[in-house]
Computed example of a mutant assay.
Amino acid sequence: SRGAFTVKMGPPVVARRWSADTVKTAIADPAARRLGEVTATADEPGAAEIAERLRAMGWQRTEPGGEDGFAAGQPRYVFQVPFAGRSLEEIHRGLNQQWRRNIKKADKAGVQVVRGGYDDLPAFYELYAETAERDRFIPRPLPYFQRMWTSLTAEDPDRMRLYLARHEGDVLAAATMLTVGSHVWYSYGASTGRKREVQPNNAIQWRMMTDAHALGAAVYDFRGITDTLDESDHLVGLLRFKAGAGGEAAEYLGEWDLPINRLLHKALDVYMARR
């Protein structure tokens, strides 16, 4: 009645999983080009049936909008660390040697990770804008994060958290963490190119993982990873970083559209393809 012409959704249904070791091996294999082409460690039962039921009801799966595997909406490939039934010590042992070394190095260097608030969002954004330029993506504006904070913390003061990694008065890294039920997401991250040797990124992630475990999280979700395994792609470094935390890569069923007005739905597809 309000003129909607398409319904979109991203079902939280995992289709396949790859262990961290499988991902690491695939990155090192010159013949492996995309994660989706690598034999999965586990295929989730029922996912294919759900996809067929959606198609039978008229839903259409949309493909990622870019060659790097990231869509305009929710990522199809993510990296997750299972927490359920595991102690913090077990999770720490699941980190690779480089992660554990970097966490210890940050602590020895005096990196302090603290929780921030709404007034610290500009400091986060300054690093986020620097990260966007370095990693070649278009940043969201500061008011986006301010609205996110206001909206989510109005639901629950702990729904969204901001963490800052400081060293000798300098903010070197910052990240947001979202919590819904027992699922915790590392949502947005940012860092400067300065003082990388004190390892602020590992320090901030370990603090967030520690706090997530204390909250009773069943899973710590690093969110989107690239589908490409090409070593020359700058996003492979992000995949390698996340895989170092242990856990597993997961492929969701992806995003699905249900066209209500097929003409307008097609027109939007054409517009988005040309934009």
Rank of each mutant, 00 (worst) to 15 (best):
A245P: 03
P157F: 13
A15M: 04
P11W: 01
Y220N: 03
E37T: 10
G66V: 05
R2L: 14
R140Y: 13
R240V: 08
S19M: 13
R115A: 05
K24S: 14
D119Q: 15
H183P: 08
Y125C: 02
W256K: 06
R147L: 13
K242C: 02
Y144V: 05
T176M: 15
H265T: 14
N202L: 05
H213P: 09
L142G: 06
L264A: 04
A190W: 00
L121P: 07
F79H: 15
A31R: 04
R134E: 05
T22D: 11
R274G: 11
K195R: 15
Q74Y: 08
H167R: 03
P64E: 05
F5P: 02
P75R: 09
A217Q: 00
K104C: 07
R136F: 11
T62Q: 09
M9S: 08
W18M: 08
V111Q: 06
K108C: 04
R262A: 07
R159E: 03
L215N: 04
A249N: 08
I91C: 10
E130T: 08
R262L: 07
Y125G: 00
G244R: 06
Y220K: 00
P139S: 06
I138K: 13
Y77G: 01
I50T: 14
R140N: 02
T210R: 12
L178N: 01
L238D: 13
L164H: 12
K242T: 07
R159S: 13
L238A: 10
G110I: 10
D120N: 08
G46Q: 07
L54V: 12
G3I: 10
G85N: 12
L263C: 01
S187M: 04
L172I: 01
R2K: 14
A129G: 01
E155G: 11
G116R: 10
L235T: 02
G117L: 06
R17T: 07
P45Y: 09
L215W: 13
L264P: 00
W206A: 11
L239A: 04
A218P: 01
A175L: 04
G36D: 04
D29I: 12
E63W: 09
A273H: 02
M272E: 15
D29E: 06
V270C: 08
D221V: 04
M9P: 01
H213M: 12
L264Y: 05
F124G: 10
G65F: 10
A173C: 02
R16Q: 14
T131G: 09
Y77V: 02
T179Q: 04
P75D: 09
Q97I: 07
N201R: 00
F241A: 00
A48I: 14
T150E: 04
I138D: 12
T62V: 06
G85S: 02
A214T: 06
G246Q: 09
G94T: 01
G189A: 06
Y188Q: 12
R166P: 00
T6S: 12
M209F: 01
L35Y: 01
F70E: 12
T176P: 02
L268H: 10
A123I: 13
G117T: 11
L258M: 10
D233Y: 08
